[in-house]
Amino acid sequence: MVKIIAEIGSVHDGSFGNACKLIEAAAEVGADVVKFQTHIANEETLKNAPSPSYFTDEDRYSYFERTSFSLNQWAKLKEIANKNNLSFLSSPFSIKAVDILESINIDAFKIASGEVTNLPLIEKIASTKKEVYISTGMSNFKEIDQALNILKSAPYLTVMQCSSIYPCPPEKVGINVIELMKSKYSNIAKIGFSDHTLGFAAGISAIVKGAEVIEKHLTLSNMMYGSDAANAMEVDKFKSFVKMIRETSIIINSKIDKNDISDYKEMKKIFEKSIVASRNIPIGKIIEIEDLNFKKPGTGISASKYKSVINQKVKKQIQVDQLLSWDDLE
């Protein structure tokens, strides 16, 4: 079954109450995993580090300080997730953040796209021997290979195609990369897709191409504050997204034997055609094509057998529109 990750990111905006509600929403939409980001401002960024173009309302250092959670709060969030039958996942952005997440016995780690070249962080995560997901939104294969060389001993590893564009336009999704990743990494990892588009099509396309894990941002409302909410999917739409992903997975993995038509036995009787008399046919007449018509139901001699009926001699009187039977013929 495809694993679905509901990415909370920073949608909670530092509100512990909202974070709890978002976990409950992740369970409600049918996700398998809920994911957060663990930021410690002074451990991961300089105060004068530039912000992305979509982050304009406050500097990120202040934002990370304002929106971070305490150790006890992280522990409580994990507890709530697990009570809702969700695995609890977070992306640490510093070595200290790894320590915090390890202290609450986090279920798995996610390496964010911007951390793929942060090899000290990756080495720290690898040392935990936990399950690891790695996004690749701004890395080439050389950088990905370098990271995976460290992570290859992880008990469970998922490499995720991703494009770090918010929102991601259809032409930048890179679904073709999933097949490349499968050919390169399937011996050490599952392949997934981190979806930054606003719609449904990219995630479904990823499943068709063989992705086994789908991640998408979840929000309670697109009007919530912060850089993530506007590009995330609201609860009702996310439910539909999950339903589509599940159905797509069933479709792909359900093989049909086209020669086994037993499921259609009754439908064939209703919709297919039988051979009927186009006119009254007397005893002794040799059947011609003009004597025949082809009508529902499909309970008599199949229309496909009409050549076997032509030139047969009639041994019983046949009325117009009567279904022909082999018993009527010599």
Rank of each mutant, 00 (worst) to 15 (best):
S278F: 08
S274R: 10
A31M: 07
R279G: 00
T128R: 12
I106R: 08
K3D: 11
F271G: 01
V235T: 14
C162L: 09
G174E: 04
M244I: 00
E143N: 09
Y264L: 15
S91C: 03
E43A: 12
I165R: 06
A126N: 13
A206R: 10
I175C: 06
L323G: 01
V159N: 06
I134Q: 07
V213L: 09
E272A: 09
E290N: 15
V276K: 14
F69L: 10
F88E: 07
V29E: 03
I175D: 03
F271E: 09
I289A: 15
I122R: 05
Q317V: 10
D260C: 11
L218C: 09
I80E: 03
G199H: 03
G114Y: 08
Y61P: 02
Q322G: 05
V132S: 09
V173D: 04
R246P: 01
L119H: 03
L89G: 02
V276D: 01
C162M: 07
P282W: 04
Q312A: 13
D32V: 03
K313A: 06
E272N: 13
E43W: 01
P167M: 08
I150R: 08
I5C: 05
V320Q: 15
A189G: 09
V309T: 10
S254E: 14
G14C: 08
F69S: 02
I252H: 01
I104P: 03
E266F: 10
L323Y: 11
T136K: 11
L292I: 11
A49D: 09
P169M: 05
N84S: 11
K96P: 00
C168H: 04
S103L: 06
E234M: 10
K269L: 15
I252R: 15
T299S: 14
A206E: 09
S205I: 00
D59C: 11
I144H: 08
I122Y: 09
K273D: 08
P50F: 04
S302N: 14
W74M: 08
G9C: 05
Y264I: 13
S274G: 13
S278M: 02
I165S: 02
N42E: 15
R279S: 14
P169I: 07
E330C: 06
A26H: 05
E58V: 09
A303G: 14
P282K: 10
K130Q: 12
T219H: 05
K3I: 12
F200E: 09
T38W: 00
E115M: 11
V116Y: 07
P170F: 05
S186W: 02
I111W: 03
A75D: 05
S274Y: 12
K239F: 06
I165Y: 03
P92G: 05
K47S: 01
V132H: 04
S194R: 04
T136W: 07
G203S: 15
